[in-house]
Design a protein around this nucleic acid. Structure first.
Lengths: 276, 276
DNA sequence: CTTGACCTTGCCCCTGGGTCAAGGTTCGAC
DNA sequence: GTCGAACCTTGACCCAGGGGCAAGGTCAAG
């Protein structure tokens, strides 16, 4: 006859766990000896090992209680199911391991693969870390708020980036962040930007629903995501166009200048807009 | 700006988990909007994914709290360690899977491999399931109470079982369980058994400490592990030897007949003794 | 006879959330 | 303009134990 400590060592569980199983009715309380100690038999040991094995496999104790007394067929079926769960959990842990490895690496854990590739392209292009960070955060917000729209939009933006002219404009906007607000290059940049946008309709702009999404997302600003030079740039683009590049007929009357500037800005910096 | 539900979906955690992280101080509480709803930024999303990855890897939240703000070197070192733990847990789960598979099978989960082999040998020999079960339970008790002694003893018993004469005696004892107590074969069996034991000293019997262990283990009886025929057999072996095989000089004066019978019985059925 | 290891019961707190309850908010549809 | 669904809020209890403490009884060996 075994004491509780011997039984616990045999089954590889703690004394506390055994008493817990008694309370739950999983393991019948054995007879006590003259001093009140529990005295266990081999039957208890066998049952406890079964309980331990199922409990270790993650089966809730309430279910273990039913299973240890169940007929062999029920048990076999249950074991098959539990084994499946176990396999799933192993696969899950492996996935967690992979994610863990990426944790100290790049941004792939936070954005979709497409966006991650795009961010890598930006870095390769020589875009500043600050700007890449701003883009990343913008895409996180977009993906979170509307994954479907974000998916469409990242495709468009990557196509846009294949245009050398747009790339140059993007890089200059990036550089302009640190310029003085009175820098003489700002009006010229604003002009060139407006001209470029005047000549390029993005596919998504033809869909009102998309514009609505953009407008809502543009409102999801982060504080501190701008600079004096960028603010000046925004004001310049809201103002009248330069004499050398007159307004084009395509201007939608329903689209105000502020919205246009916001939209432009969103092309360069996803979450950089501070308007509404 | 994200609501708690959007953030939860993005990170693949529950709303409850996020609030839990707030309570623990892992994730700073964001500002509330006019209605008291929490409104999250991309910074929160990034941090939450980090927290989720570590928490999923089994890192205690108290430690996660330190890690998410730690410097890259500390983080890298910690990740390596966590990854090790993860591998261990995967190995552990695999072991649990193996054990689960054996749960509906044989006895290998409850006794050492040597004993399991021995039990298989018994079955192959044609020993009854009842007897095998009795043996199994006896070995469980022995292994639990004194693994070292059980290891020595199982070796001896397997050697004993290689003797054809002993095997025959063992099988007849097994069969005798169901005999009538007045069966005429019983006295003859008792005689042959006594004669066999008189001619065979087992190595362990020369060691007093071992005898003490055996005596203590023999006391660990299970109720109902006997039968009228076996009880008669025990009495017969306690009585005077048959005329044809007189007592031998080896009889230890300090060892009474009852103890001798108990010892004999223990050779045939580990936990079958009901004395002491 | 003492000492240390082991046993008894009962209690409360910790983890990492899940679940339920009871109520306030927002948003789209009619 | 109002309705319902879906969302948010806090609070409290549950699971499957682990850990610790109290306050004491028991056992075996020196």
């Amino acid at each position: 006859m075994l004491t509780i400590g011997q039984l616990a060592d045999y089954a590889g569980v703690t004394i506390k766990a055994i008493r817990h199983y008694h309370e739950r009715g999983l393991l019948t309380e054995p007879d006590r000896d003259s001093s009140g100690y529990r005295r266990y038999t081999a039957e208890h040991a066998v049952k406890l090992v079964k309980i331990r094995t199922l409990a270790h496999a993650g089966v809730p104790l309430a279910r273990v209680k039913d299973l240890v007394d169940a007929d062999p067929d029920t048990l076999t079926a249950a074991i098959a199911e539990v084994d499946h769960n176990l396999q799933d959990r192993i696969a899950q842990l492996r996935r967690t391991r992979d994610q863990l490895a990426q944790l100290s690496g790049g941004d792939r854990l936070f954005v979709s693969p497409e966006v991650a590739d795009y961010l890598d392209d930006l870095r390769e292009l020589g875009v500043s870390e600050r700007q890449v960070h701003l883009e990343r955060d913008g895409w996180i917000l977009m993906q979170t708020a509307s994954p479907a729209d974000a998916c469409v939009w990242i495709t468009e933006k990557r196509e846009l980036m294949s245009d050398p002219e747009f790339r140059a404009l993007y890089l200059e906007h990036d550089a302009a962040y640190d310029w003085s607000p009175s820098d003489p290059r700002l009006p010229a940049l604003a002009d060139r930007t407006r001209n470029w946008f005047a000549g390029h309709h993005s596919p998504s702009e033809t869909r009102p629903v998309h514009n609505a999404t953009i407008a809502r997302l543009a409102a999801q600003s982060q504080p501190g995501a701008s600079s004096p030079a960028w603010d000046r740039l925004a004001r310049l683009m809201e103002g009248s166009p330069s004499p050398g590049s007159p307004g084009r007929g395509h201007d939608d009357p329903g689209e105000g200048r502020i919205a246009a500037s916001s939209r432009v800005r969103s092309w360069f910096c996803e979450a950089g807009s501070s308007e509404v």
